Amino acid sequence: MITDPLFYAAAIPAVVLLGLAKGGFSGLGLLSLPLMALVLSPVQAAAITLPILIVQDAVTVWAYRRTWDRRNVLILLPSAVLGIVTGYLVAAQVSDATVTLAVGLIAVAFAVRRMVLERRATPPQAARADLPRGLFWGWVAGFTSMIAHAGGPPFQIYVMPQKLPRDVFVGTGAVFFAVNNWIKVPPYIALGQFSAGNLATAAALFPIAIASTWAGVHLVRRVSGEKFYTLVYILLVVVGAKLVIDGAMTLL
């Protein structure tokens, strides 16, 4: 188990961000891994983060157990599993930085375009949960989640145009990523990323993980549905821009 105070100085804010993201403030979680990577290798940071995410998923799924869209989850999951398997198979061949840069560019372009469209006199009508788009973005979400821990933006790109009620949007993401994170456990074990020390370190952070997730659930329910979507678009731009910067700097 890690005992270095410097690690916890970075890990505690990172876990709080993950909890707020799981509670409904989508996108904030992508800022947590870079924080932990300041004091650990990215691989070890990811190994410690996954058990924390699974615990937080349990809290979020319980909180939103009655408000999630079954059709969306059933469309997204099969291709997400294929995306995770693809990510595992090509992990050594595809640069994390390249994937990160691509996801960031797509996220920023999507969010800016949607914000422009939503401000028109006649904003676009809500999209339907259709199979072709869902299968594609489900695969992308699974792949980027496995390769670069960036499954949130592809999920949002598919689901946000449907204009689901706030709690249904958050609940659908909670169920989808809860299943995804469990599916990622065998590949992480196969890659040798779970050790007794890493698991013990993750367990030490569980109380903060649970408390911050409940805080996110309660805080997001104080935000109106319209303001919630505006906030998510803004967060998507910020997170997408950060992914672009991270990916570009690594490639350069």
Rank of each mutant, 00 (worst) to 15 (best):
W62L: 09
D96Y: 12
G151E: 02
S212Q: 12
F206G: 03
I208L: 10
E118R: 14
L38F: 15
D4F: 12
A150Q: 02
V15N: 14
P154A: 11
P154L: 11
V237S: 02
A47Y: 14
L33A: 05
A58L: 14
G138T: 00
A80D: 04
L50C: 05
N180E: 00
V220T: 14
M249T: 13
M36F: 08
A111K: 12
L28M: 14
V103M: 03
V170M: 06
A121D: 15
E226N: 06
V238K: 10
G134H: 08
F136M: 08
F25I: 14
P5D: 04
K22M: 04
G87M: 05
S212W: 02
N72E: 13
L235E: 05
P154S: 12
A109V: 10
Y188T: 00
M36L: 09
L243P: 00
T201N: 12
S26W: 03
M249E: 07
G151A: 10
I84G: 07
T144F: 08
V59I: 13
V239L: 07
P13E: 04
A241H: 01
R71N: 03
I147L: 09
L6G: 02
P153V: 08
K184S: 01
L191K: 14
V73H: 12
L53T: 07
L53Y: 15
L131A: 13
S95W: 02
W68S: 01
D130C: 03
L131S: 06
I157R: 03
A178R: 05
N181W: 13
A129S: 15
A148L: 05
W182C: 09
G24A: 07
G171D: 04
A241W: 07
P153N: 11
D130G: 09
M36P: 09
I157D: 01
R70Y: 07
R221N: 14
A37N: 11
L205H: 13
V168Q: 15
A63H: 05
K242N: 14
F206L: 04
L40K: 03
A129P: 11
L6W: 14
G152I: 04
A204D: 01
Y8W: 05
L17K: 08
V94A: 10
G27S: 09
F177P: 06
P5T: 05
L40D: 00
S195Y: 08
L89R: 07
T201Q: 14
A111L: 09
D130Y: 06
L74G: 02
